[in-house]
Amino acid sequence: MTTASIPLPRPVSAIGRVPTWLLPLAVIVFAYAGIPLFASDYLYDAILAPFLALSLAAVGLNILTGYAGQVSLGSAAFMAVGAYAAYNFNLRVEGLPLLASIVFAGLIASAVGVVFGLPSLRLKGFYLAVSTLAAQFFVQWTLTKFSWFSNYNPSGVIDAPALGYVFEGPHGRYLFSLSVVVALTVFAARLVKTQTGRNFIAVRDNETAAKISGVPVLHTKLLAFAISSFIIGVAGVLWAFAYLRTVEPHGFNLDRSFQILFIIIIGGLATIRGAFLGAALIVVLPLVLSRAGTFLFGSYFDSGVLDMSQRILVGALIIVFLIAEPDGLAALGNRIARRLRLRSPTN
């Protein structure tokens, strides 16, 4: 058997003739050129800004949980670390470009992620999931307790710095978020196709077999925590700087961590586009619910009732997805696409 003379055939997309990069490219082009044609300030600030930040956080968590199989309930903590780190780099390092602040913030989040990922070397399953809660509570406590982090602001709520002249206004902030999200998503999509990405899945699917096959299991787990926390940290920066435009610990509570976990479950574990589909649903759902509620029940449908019905709906959605579509919206989309293709006469 000769190993050198075997040619490398192009990987064929499972769907068929269409190259796999075409659809994502079309979406990116539309996001840059199409959306600004019709988007209102409301669409930018109330929908697209949180959507982009949550999508990115979900991409990050998906690397850790979906691909590498390590369940984390502490995502919001890493978002908080990113947001606060970027704020402090920006505040305390004279002349540091905003982009550099964000990259450094991601690296800090990454380092914190590795520290809280250390238990994964000995703990598995629920024991690990519970241990990630330590990150959630410890980080939240630290940021509230030590006012240095919020520059001794008495309310603890601080204004995020502006994104700079180029990215002013809703449209500018959108372009900024979009560019960060596109860059990191392309990175993530590439990553999961490399040997490192295969190692993640191998560790997830069978840790013992992975170890015996030569996958450096401990290194791989910590790397998953590091990369995931970097991306989630940057998502935290987008959340604070481009969406809320304030930095405060309360926005990064346990509910936020669960929300990101729900996004990847609803969207589909171990898929990149699932993170976006899930985030879209989670962002749009309360808006639709609010409109529908007011329409149906009028003034009885106040913010308290909305809050509760939203909780019930999100919880129920999770259960329904786990039972009926465990592979999430991504798989649902695939099935619908396949059915459409079968039906269309041209194909």
């Binding site: 040997q195 899945i201 191998a202």
Partner: peptide
Amino acid sequence: ALFKGLTVLENVETGRAA
């Protein structure tokens, strides 16, 4: 003890991880 989430090719490639 294969990796269910990987294709045949990817499973085999994992054998070169070391």
